[in-house]
Design a protein around this nucleic acid. Sequence first.
DNA 1: GGCTGTCTTTGCGCTGGCGCAAGTTCGGGC
DNA 2: GCCCGAACTTGCGCCAGCGCAAAGACAGCC
Lengths: 228, 228
Amino acid sequence: MAAVSRMGIFLGLDASALAEVLAAATLATAQAGEAYVCQGDPAHRFYLLVSGRVRLSQVTPEGQQVVMRFIAPGEEFGIVAILGRLPYPVTAEAVEPAVALAWSGEAFNRLILRHPQIGLNGMAMLAERVREFQDRLREAGTQRVERRVANGLLRLARQAGRSVAEGVLIDLPLSRQDLAEMTGTTLFTVSRTLAGWEERGIISSARKRVTLLQPHALVAVAEDLPEG
Amino acid sequence: MAAVSRMGIFLGLDASALAEVLAAATLATAQAGEAYVCQGDPAHRFYLLVSGRVRLSQVTPEGQQVVMRFIAPGEEFGIVAILGRLPYPVTAEAVEPAVALAWSGEAFNRLILRHPQIGLNGMAMLAERVREFQDRLREAGTQRVERRVANGLLRLARQAGRSVAEGVLIDLPLSRQDLAEMTGTTLFTVSRTLAGWEERGIISSARKRVTLLQPHALVAVAEDLPEG
DNA sequence: GGCTGTCTTTGCGCTGGCGCAAGTTCGGGC
DNA sequence: GCCCGAACTTGCGCCAGCGCAAAGACAGCC
């Protein structure tokens, strides 16, 4: 309950409203690699992640995969469920053991109507999400690969970064492929780019693991500043 | 009032609620080329377009412009105003004479709390917006220029298409530059691409004006099908 | 009608980054 | 400890699309 009361979407609700929200929820756990929802399935449930990490990805009609974003605890996914029985546009898959709260679309609709604050918070959350996608779309259209990858890493660090002795560890199993699919390039190019940064001491990388050693240097790359 | 009651965000409100919503609104008109909101200004107003067309664009720190989308009557812009005094992330400029309803962020917050249906509708609207941006981001990451331009045109046709004798006219002053900034390419490449399609009889174009003569052929390009 | 500025076209050279193939390293299961 | 498959690296060839320059076409204004 304490955890739930701190989630953005339930900010400003009193204890009884929170209790009601929780009473309507079911708990859904997933192991690493297990999917919460699959692209194309009819959307009937809406989720809020409590712990773990979830990866949202889309597969193109040609079979190519694209990683839309990673979901951190406190964030929502499957919102499309509240607007009728459209199919989910993405697949949501746990990349490490995860726990989420789930509501049926109808139940969540009723909660919003009874507690308008949830609708207000939800709009704020989605507006923020729209802003993030706008930024990424702008990047995709105007920036070269190196800058996009730098921005992608910085975004992940902000979302899932953990301070460790050497710098900021991106606390996610993150393959070169994932990074390529997030930034619209190929795993080859990502590999070469990371290798270049590693040589310059900006990052340190291993299998499915990246640590930012000099975040400010990466920011310089992302902003296309002359060598710092 | 009739027009307002048909807007997605006010669906399901009764007459008295609609009257209340309208009473809180002010009318804002703009001439072609005039800006409703400017990127970077503190966001204090939220708009719903009644008539005309509005272009949302962003300027990168390097001064490069990007066109995020066009707003059609019934759609919202400036939503960021309801979440505190953040700066607007985009500039909203009328491309033809426009009329919009405007609310202050606080007033709209109060309306949502009094009429939760608005919050629900607003979430639906934003969820749809997120979906659109996800699609575009996927396209940006996986498709070649020609397909992206085809998809861009089709999206515009859906949003602002008008049936005319020869086909579907995109009813917007739309320069090559605009199209390039929407699809993440250059006006040169757009010009060449359109010229190619015109030669094949798929479209017909003039200054700031494009008409789809064979929409299905454009769909074939967008989906990368073999020649139809 | 002529002028001006904006929009558009077209040619040409160049390169970032893709695509593939082959090889290497690593982690986990038995 | 060994094996297997997944993840990663590296070299090489190639081309889609960018960048620029210069010229052409059109709309609106005086």
